[in-house]
Amino acid sequence: MYKLEVVAGGKVFKKDGQEVVALQETNMQIAKGKFVSIIGPSGCGKSTLFNMIAGLLKPTSGEILLDGQNIIGKSGRVGYMLQKDLLLPWRTILSNIILGLELKGVSKKEAENRAVPLMEKYGLGGFENHYPGELSGGMKQRAALLRTLLYDQDVILLDEPFGALDAQTRLKMQTWLLQIWGDFNKTVLFVTHDIDEAIYLSDEIYVLSPRPGRLKEIVTVNIPRPRGQDTLLMKEFVDLKKKLLGMLKEDQEKIE
């Protein structure tokens, strides 16, 4: 059985009396523990897809199955991290990280006992009582991801989490994310604009195409792990990059 399945999931909006297809009926089958990236130009339905899986948006058609169970319209079944860190500015980093557990009804003390070792292990030790405003962009994204992790769902959706970071920090965060993914054995869905990032991180890449948003192709990444800086120079990496660039270019030309 697949961990997460989207069966003919599609979404149609109405705008000014006209029907706009945000996402044509799409099928996804994601095995447990996989790292899957979704790339595509804006308007390809990435956010729609994520919001549907997160239960924040109901699909017009199709089913979304988590461990074989339908989770349409049910929020809180998967971890979801948005592009912005969305830390509550009036809470300390520690009390931001335990927010998910707090909402589940876990006692504050127990939640903190679980959060503090994680913070220490993943580069936020000593920042427990700082406020988000005092941290750098990379640190805030770490905190946001730890909040999602601590919420403890098997599937985690990451919507361009490193989009706003500079190149250096970004590379560091990618390695950090791979470490976490290895440690926790989560199934990750990762939206990005960055082809390098998608290849470097993923087992599979779903290429989406805009107007109407639809799934264009599924590309398997056969580069062995663990991956490092050298991976970016390997022949397989470069070949795959060429292929993906070609696909995205077609769409770009179509839009123009």
């Binding site: 924040l56 929020s75 948005l82 998910g100």
Partner: peptide, 24 residues
């Protein structure tokens, strides 16, 4: 609105969004 969305994605009820985000 994104803060509200984030809380809902963590499985929050409306009353929890009200007390943890709207009031503060």
């Amino acid at each position: 609105k994104d803060l509200e969305k984030m809380l809902f994605s963590l499985g929050a009820k409306r009353s929890q969004v009200f007390s943890k985000v709207v009031i503060p």
